[in-house]
């Protein structure tokens, strides 16, 4: 579309609209933290933004003894990470439900440890509640729990997902806070000057990641999802020292909207900029 397109006189129409504006006149307003690209693509995908939604929880993470020489999950800490994220997400979903949203797109989950207290962290979930222009082919856009769907996909990815005939059901996550054993003097000594695998470390990292991923999978099964897209598997050291790490798996559970999943073959473009 070019500016001289007769249906859309840019910028004359835009200037006319600005000239007609009367500050203070009543309008229906929505807020959103989507970028312009995301905003336009979400609209094009057939969803209307309703407003920015947000949930927050400041959480005190408890204490758990770690055995110096043992690989173990620190379940108190795992539970804390789960519970606090759940609180933030639930509050965000509640705001979206009040707005009458079918779902929440572009969700960001952030954890920020606070300077003003020991083991205090803020868990924050922010996204944009959207309402579909049309009802879903399978009845409702909401998930099996009757909640608005959530998705941490960007607006671009969301557009592509809908084009490809899938709908998001919800963000699914799995968390496991794991303490990796310190090695005894004898073990460390025997490896000096050698390039060898350290099996207990390998095993610990395997265990922890598997726990996180299987928990995420279980959440997706609860939502009766077909698959999980855009999975991120993160190791978050937070503030627990070198041997204690949170393994965190997060993705968007999806369900098919139709049987064929073709999108138009992308055109190749050569950008005139480096990025």
């Amino acid at each position: 579309m070019t500016p001289d397109d007769p249906t859309l006189g840019i910028p004359a129409d835009a200037m006319r609209r600005l000239a007609e504006m009367r500050p203070g006149q009543a309008t229906t307003l929505f807020t959103s933290d989507l970028s312009v690209n995301e905003f336009l693509l979400v609209r094009e995908a057939g969803f209307r933004p309703l407003g920015l939604v947000l949930g927050s929880s400041i959480y005190h993470v408890g204490f758990q003894m770690r055995r110096w020489g043992q690989n173990q999950e620190l379940d108190t800490l795992s539970q804390a990470m789960y519970h606090a994220r759940e609180l933030a997400m639930t509050r965000m979903e509640a705001e979206a439900a009040v707005l009458g949203g079918d779902g929440i797109v572009g969700v960001r989950l952030a954890i920020e440890f606070k300077e003003f207290g020991n083991d205090l962290a803020e868990f924050l979930a922010v996204g944009t509640a959207v309402k579909a222009d049309q009802t879903a082919p399978h009845g409702t856009w909401r998930n099996v729990k009757g909640q608005p769907f959530t998705s941490d996909l960007s607006g671009q990815d969301f557009w592509t997902l809908i084009q490809a005939g899938y709908a998001p059901l919800g963000m699914v996550m799995g968390s496991c806070v794991y303490h990796i054993a310190h090695r005894g003097f004898g073990q460390a000594f025997s490896n000096i000057g050698q390039n060898v695998e350290v099996p207990q470390f390998t095993e610990a990292l395997y265990d922890a990641r598997e726990l996180a991923m299987s928990r995420m999978q279980a959440e997706a099964e609860q939502l009766r999802a077909d698959g999980i897209v855009a999975v991120q598997l993160l190791s978050l050291p937070h503030r627990w020292g070198g041997h204690t790490t949170e393994f965190f798996a997060i993705g968007t559970a999806v369900t098919p909207l139709r049987d064929d999943h073709h999108i138009t073959t992308p055109q190749l473009v050569l950008p005139l900029t480096d990025r």
Partner: peptide, 10 residues
């Protein structure tokens, strides 16, 4: 709203 806008992108 005072500016009579219809959307506000944060």
């Amino acid at each position: 709203q005072r500016a009579a806008a219809e959307t506000a992108l944060v």
